[in-house]
Design a protein around this nucleic acid. Structure first.
Lengths: 180, 180
DNA sequence: AACAGCATGTAACTTGTTACATGATTTA
DNA sequence: TAAATCATGTAACAAGTTACATGCTGTT
């Protein structure tokens, strides 16, 4: 809040801006799909409405722009694209943007932390639920990797897959321990 | 939003409630320290003001209560404790509370995703910054584990330590790959 | 003809943060 | 005696969600 100049934006703004950085035009709807497939694994999955809001802010700052296609009144869609100023802003953020501590929200572990209020097997069931979810995530990540060429994107996906394997193993072990 | 009955509360409310579940009295200030040492590693580190707000809500619902000590006007502090209703609510949440997908916010990886806008070594420097932070976290976790007796809490900390090791290794490898 | 997916957007609301304000107690 | 820590709390704001409203396009 101390930094009110135009160069400061919340991380979410850069997350959305970056989705537009591989040159090309995309609709807000497409950006939501893209976000779910990429940034959701390393940062957060913004709601559709959040993406609309973010695009408006970015456009107000001249970091993105859009054209309407087709020009006819009915059935028109907005195609967004990053501007040179937007590329500069993204570069500045990647290079010098402020560091943020990593955050992990895992309700299975939060429940385990407070698990003394229930029977062990009930707790284990909740952990299993997380395991099933993580397994699914892993499959989605592998499918995404298979269809990704861009080298940095692949590195990130590989990192996420490795982490997913580790978390899966640790969660399975936790579940077993709880059932002993 | 569809579920407006008294049994529904956001996860953060249960996170704070659970901090009071090992019987005993704690001030809001103490809860903040506790939160930073425990739930911060698996869920989120609420701001001090968030804890005050949460306690008020929980007290309004009869899930926690407090007494003021000492009774003198000057220098008084509020000692909170969980009520039987609070224990029931916590148990119900651990047992049946709705499942939430896990979220990880890692800006080093988000930067990597968009790293094509800078030189590889600049990106690697940002990853190193994350590595240093993760290393520090790991040390804090190990210190916390050493002073923790409660079995479930230990299981969670061990899980978090294992994950931290994995993430550290993956991040170091990423940094090296970026410098090749 | 029905349904899933594509597409845009607003309004009301909840959640959570930062900054501010205050003051006592303990330790160096 | 100065600084760090303990302790409480409010106000203004930012951020993000859910629910709602609308309608086209392509597939079955």
């Amino acid at each position: 809040m101390s930094n009110r100049n135009t160069t400061w934006l919340p991380t979410t703004a850069y997350a959305v801006l970056g989705l537009l950085s591989p040159r090309g035009e995309r609709t807000a709807y497409e950006l939501k799909q893209l976000a779910d497939a990429t940034i959701a694994h390393v940062y957060w999955a913004p709601a559709q409405s959040a993406i609309y809001t973010e695009l408006q802010r970015l456009e107000g700052l001249g970091l993105v722009e859009h054209r309407v296609e087709p020009e006819t009144e009915l059935r028109s869609r907005r195609l967004y694209r990053i501007t040179p100023a937007g590329e500069d802003a993204l570069r500045a953020w990647v290079r010098d943007g402020r560091f943020e501590a990593a955050v992990t929200k895992n309700t299975a572990l939060l429940r385990t932390l407070y698990g003394h209020v229930v029977e062990r097997h009930e707790l284990a069931a909740r952990v299993d639920e997380h395991v099933a979810w993580a397994q699914e995530q892993l499959e989605r990540l592998e499918a995404t990797l298979a269809s990704t060429q861009e080298p940095l994107r692949r590195l990130v996906l590989e990192w996420a897959i490795e982490r997913a394997h580790g978390e899966l193993a640790a969660s399975r072990r936790l579940s077993e321990t709880l059932r002993e």
